[in-house]
Design a protein around this nucleic acid. Sequence first.
DNA 1: ATAGGGTTAG
Length: 623
Amino acid sequence: MQPKVKSSATTVSFYCAVRLKLLPSILHFYDFLHTHKHSTTTPSSPFTKQAFASLLESCSSESYQLKQIHALILTTGLSIKNSLITQLLTSLTLLGDMTYARLLFDEMHKPRSFLWNTLIKEYVKNDLSIEATSVYQKMHRLGVRPDTFTYPFVLKACAQVDDLWTGQEVHAHVVKFGLHCNAIVRTELMMMYAKVGELGSADYLFETMSNRDLVAWNALIAVYVQTGNAGKALGMFHGMVLAGIKPDSVTVVSALSACADLGCLEIGKQIDQFVMKEILDSNLFVNNARLHMYVKCGNIEAARCLFDKMPQRNVISWSTMIRGYAMNGESDKSLHLFSVMQNMGVQPNQVTYLGILSACGHAGLVREGQSYFEEMVKSNDCNVQPRLEHYACMVDLLGRSGHLEEAFDFIKRMPIEPDAGVWGALLGACTIHKNIELSQNVADILFNLAPEIASYHVLLSNIYAAAGRWGDVEKVRQKMRKKGVKKVVAYSSVEASGEVHVFHGGDRSHPLSSNIYEALAELIKQITSIGYMPNTTEVLHDVQMEEKEATLSTHSEKLAVAFGLINVRPQSPIRVIKNLRICNDCHTFMKFSSKVTNREIIMRDKNRFHHFKDGYCSCKDFW
DNA sequence: ATAGGGTTAG
């Protein structure tokens, strides 16, 4: 028989150990009490449910400690309380140990809905959505009644794995259990449909929702922006204001993001004013979104002004500003800001480096780019190791500045498998430098890797066309037809009085079409008189010269600028957004136009901005 | 006990 004092000393020590998070001591004390036949299950035992709960909490950062505690729970004979196991399960999942968590779950006798919900939730959080849906299906099979807490997670899982089929099945269950009017479940249903591309179903659920609240509006607006439907998102934003719902910081972030996508500076500025009026400008998310909007609308001065005024900045703010300068061809400012950032102790991430590498690319700074790339490779931080995008950037940098062989070598020495983006960068460089042999090899690789991407076919046929090899051009076009490769339709857009006007090549659908064509004809007349000559080398078809010129003269950006001349206030620049890259002829056209009309033309193409002014472009013809 | 919306790049 042990002296009583000793075991109570042990009891005290146990609590101390728990408080100090000393698991080895705890295990030691447990061992002591256990081997001395001190009951571990009586009410006076230190091994109470509460003690375990706090023990679990203090050891929640180490998976192996949690497993030791699990063993402890089992040997104490303490009945396995759901709450204790749930806590253990949650801690394990937070550490990413879903395997052990699942083991625990499967050992339990008839777990309640709550625990099923927990397991599903944790699978989703750990990016294991397929497991999440299969757990839900098992739950359903076993007849465990799901509740309103079950569905948000299950629907998130369906959306994450792009599984419309299961999503619809789950939707049916939601209706069966009468949960479809719950605002949260319904919001998640909408999100699921929108994310898998079923916008109609999302809209329907929203339209027929009786208790449409702020979050429901925000959710739908956000998901529209995220899925590339910025125009629709802005439409919803207006609808929300009309419906008398006051936007909050979350709404504003999505709306600004939509403006950034569309290049809607006017609307963006209006939202900016709302931000100031409602004093939302202390929110970092909001300020980053404003910054992004100004950058993507080509108003780099406003962006910098805001950046300097921001009360807080994080790596996203810095990356956005750095990339903003890069996109606008101000590489020196971009690189300078990067060094300021590093001096301030802000850790750059992969996105920051992407901005830096593209800044080097736009300025032809080969050596600098290589040294930044080396910086990434040598970094101890696994979060700044170069990824495929960075390799593509480097190939672009090397190739664009004429080092084609070096770029090719660079790809061959890559430690990871190059993708179409990397090879595509090389093909693009081959086009610029008119290297037919290399481009044929690269194109072969690309046609195997990504046969469905039209732009690679187009690049190759451009190279042939430039060399006058019309037979080869025709072969590429036949191949495209045979494989059903569709070209991405080019468009340009201009914002006037808060409305976006979209133009396609040869477009006559605009209500002001005849005025636009008139203005365009006049413009061509004017620039021709000061030396403009159409450059038809990039026109694909082997047709008569006049026909080529006709195609060329109605490229979407030319129509957009002609429209801008009529409809954008004379003192402000004409801002054009293009979904593809600008062609050589349009680039020359814009330079001449900026001179004869004495107007600034700011054009955002797929990659960067061109600021045309007084007959020059900010890209210095290197793009 | 547990639930819905947000920022950079591609």
